[in-house]
């Protein structure tokens, strides 16, 4: 069994770990100025919305790596999940509805 890429995995992990650990171990992170604390408070909604939007709206061709705007029924599924969460019906129900909607549309060749 080949093990050569285990070393690459370790190097990739070493390249990722500093991003993850430096702020968590930074001294004085709890004594930041109010403006910085407010900025960090807003990172959560900004980052999650960005993750959702990019993974939903940007299609990347696996071979050419070309990027294009994707508009499709997945938007409807995500919107349904957002509406259910906003109506305090819970994230799990929203995810089930979103996945079920897309699975149904794909089964009917509509997505």
């Amino acid at each position: 069994m080949s093990v050569a890429l285990v070393w690459l995995a370790l190097l990739m992990g070493a390249a990722t770990y500093p991003w993850r650990v430096i702020p968590l171990l930074a001294p004085g992170i709890d004594r930041l100025p109010p403006t910085v604390r407010e900025y960090l408070r807003l990172v959560g909604p900004a980052m999650l919305a960005t993750l959702a939007a990019v993974s939903l709206a940007v299609a990347v061709d696996p071979t050419s790596r070309a990027r294009s705007l994707h508009v499709g029924p997945e938007w409807l599924a995500v919107a349904a999940c957002v509406v259910l969460v906003a109506a305090r019906r819970g994230l799990l129900l929203g995810l089930i509805v979103a996945a079920g909607l897309i699975a149904g549309l794909r089964a009917l060749n509509l997505a």
Binding site: P45, L48, C81
Partner: peptide
């Protein structure tokens, strides 16, 4: 439909 769970979860948690 498992591929739609990630963006839906991120949007819902946002």
């Amino acid at each position: 439909g498992l591929d739609v769970i990630f963006p839906a979860a991120m949007a819902g948690l946002a």
